[in-house]
Measured scan of single mutants.
Amino acid sequence: MQYKLVINGKTLKGETTTKAVDAETAEKAFKQYANDNGVDGVWTYDDATKTFTVTE
């Protein structure tokens, strides 16, 4: 399945996608991506759209 990440950071904004077997695996990949880019915020997930959002 394909999952999307929407980033609403202080210095980084945008979107990225990943393919993963489940939401938990996608979340780990997205959190690593956010961490690598210095984004630390509040996470939400919408199962209907398979979209994670992180807001600083």
Rank of each mutant, 00 (worst) to 15 (best):
A26W: 01
D47H: 12
V39D: 01
K19G: 07
M1A: 12
V6L: 09
D47C: 06
V21P: 14
T55M: 05
T55Q: 06
T51H: 03
K4Q: 06
G38M: 08
G9M: 15
G9W: 07
T25S: 13
K10L: 15
Y45F: 07
G41C: 02
A26C: 02
A23L: 12
V21I: 14
D46W: 03
E24I: 15
A48L: 13
T49K: 08
T44V: 11
Q32S: 08
T55H: 08
A48S: 12
D46N: 10
Q32N: 10
N35E: 13
G14K: 13
D36S: 10
V54E: 00
T17Q: 10
I7M: 08
F52Q: 00
G14R: 12
E27D: 05
A29M: 12
G14E: 15
K28E: 07
E15S: 08
D47L: 07
E15Y: 08
E27V: 07
E24S: 11
G41E: 01
G38R: 06
T18A: 08
T44S: 13
N8C: 07
E27F: 14
V21W: 13
E15D: 05
V6R: 07
A48W: 08
E24P: 12
K19I: 15
Q32T: 12
G41Q: 01
A26P: 01
K13D: 06
V6D: 04
K28N: 11
Y45V: 02
Q32E: 13
Q2W: 14
N35V: 15
M1D: 14
F30N: 00
V54K: 01
M1W: 15
T18E: 05
A20W: 03
T55F: 08
T11F: 15
K31C: 04
K19D: 12
V42R: 07
D46E: 08
N37G: 05
A26N: 00
G9A: 10
I7H: 03
T53N: 05
D22G: 04
D22A: 04
A34L: 11
T25L: 09
A26D: 01
E27K: 12
F52H: 02
T44K: 06
L12H: 10
T11D: 15
I7L: 09
L5V: 03
F52K: 00
D22E: 04
N8G: 05
T44I: 09
T17K: 06
Q32P: 02
T17H: 11
D40G: 09
D22Y: 04
K13L: 09
A29P: 01
E15I: 06
G41K: 01
Y3P: 01
T18G: 04
E27L: 14
L12I: 14
K50N: 07
T51S: 04
A29Y: 15
T16C: 08
K50Q: 09
G41F: 03
A29S: 11
T18R: 07
A34C: 09
T49S: 09
A23S: 11
D40I: 14
K31F: 07
E24K: 11
N37F: 13
E24D: 12
V21Q: 13
G9H: 11
V39S: 03
A48Y: 08
D47W: 08
K31V: 08
K13G: 07
V6E: 04
F30I: 02
A20T: 05
T18I: 15
L12Y: 15
V42D: 11
L5G: 01
T16Y: 15
T51I: 06
V54S: 01
K10F: 13
G9S: 12
D46Y: 04
Q32Y: 05
K28P: 02
W43D: 00
D36H: 09
E27Y: 11
D22P: 00
E27A: 10
K13V: 08
Y33R: 02
D22N: 12
A34G: 03
W43N: 00
F30Q: 00
D40F: 12
Y33M: 05
N35F: 13
D47I: 09
N8V: 15
A20I: 03
A23R: 14
T18V: 14
D40Y: 12
G38H: 12
K10M: 14
Y45P: 00
V21S: 11
T16V: 15
V54I: 12
D46L: 04
Y33P: 00
D46G: 02
V39A: 04
V6T: 06
V6H: 06
A23D: 05
E24T: 12
V21T: 14
T44A: 10
I7N: 01
V54Y: 02
E15F: 07
L5N: 01
V42F: 11
T51E: 04
Y33V: 05
V54H: 01
T18Q: 07
D36Q: 10
F52V: 02
Y45C: 01
F30H: 02
N35T: 13
A26R: 00
A34S: 04
D47P: 14
K50I: 03
N35C: 07
D36E: 14
K19Q: 13
D46S: 06
T16P: 03
G38E: 09
T11R: 07
D22H: 05
K10S: 13
A20S: 06
A26S: 03
K28A: 11
T25D: 10
T51Y: 03
K50T: 04
F30T: 00
F52Y: 06
V39E: 02
A48V: 12
T55E: 09
F52T: 00
V21C: 07
T11P: 05
Y33S: 02
D46F: 04
W43S: 01
Q2S: 12
M1G: 11
G14Y: 15
T55Y: 09
G14N: 09
V42C: 08
F52G: 00
Q2A: 09
E15K: 06
V21A: 12
G41D: 01
K50G: 05
A34K: 01
V39M: 06
N8H: 08
L12R: 04
T44G: 06
T44H: 10
V39G: 02
V54L: 14
T16W: 15
K13M: 11
T53K: 04
Q2N: 10
A48E: 13
V42T: 13
V6K: 08
N37M: 09
T17N: 07
E15N: 05
L5D: 01
T53I: 07
A20K: 03
D22W: 03
V42H: 12
Q2G: 06
F30E: 00
N8F: 14
T51K: 03
K10W: 14
G9I: 13
N37E: 09
F52L: 01
M1C: 08
K31D: 02
W43I: 03
T49E: 07
K28M: 13
M1I: 14
G38D: 07
A26H: 00
Y3V: 01
K4W: 10
G9L: 15
K10R: 09
K13P: 07
M1T: 12
Q2P: 10
I7C: 04
K4H: 10
T49R: 07
D46A: 04
G14S: 15
E27S: 09
K10I: 14
N8R: 11
A29V: 15
Q32F: 05
T44Q: 08
K31T: 05
Q2V: 13
T11G: 07
A34Q: 02
L12W: 14
V42A: 11
D47R: 07
Q2L: 15
T53L: 06
T11E: 09
Q32K: 14
M1H: 14
D40V: 13
N8D: 12
L12E: 09
L5F: 05
V54D: 00
T49F: 05
G41W: 06
E56M: 08
V6I: 10
E27P: 00
T25W: 07
Y45K: 01
K31P: 00
D47F: 09
E56P: 07
F30S: 00
K4L: 09
I7Y: 08
E27I: 08
A23P: 11
K13H: 12
G14H: 15
Y33L: 07
T49C: 04
T18W: 09
E27Q: 12
T55G: 03
I7D: 01
Y45L: 02
Q2C: 10
W43E: 01
T49M: 06
K50F: 11
T11K: 10
T16M: 15
D36G: 06
T55W: 08
E27H: 12
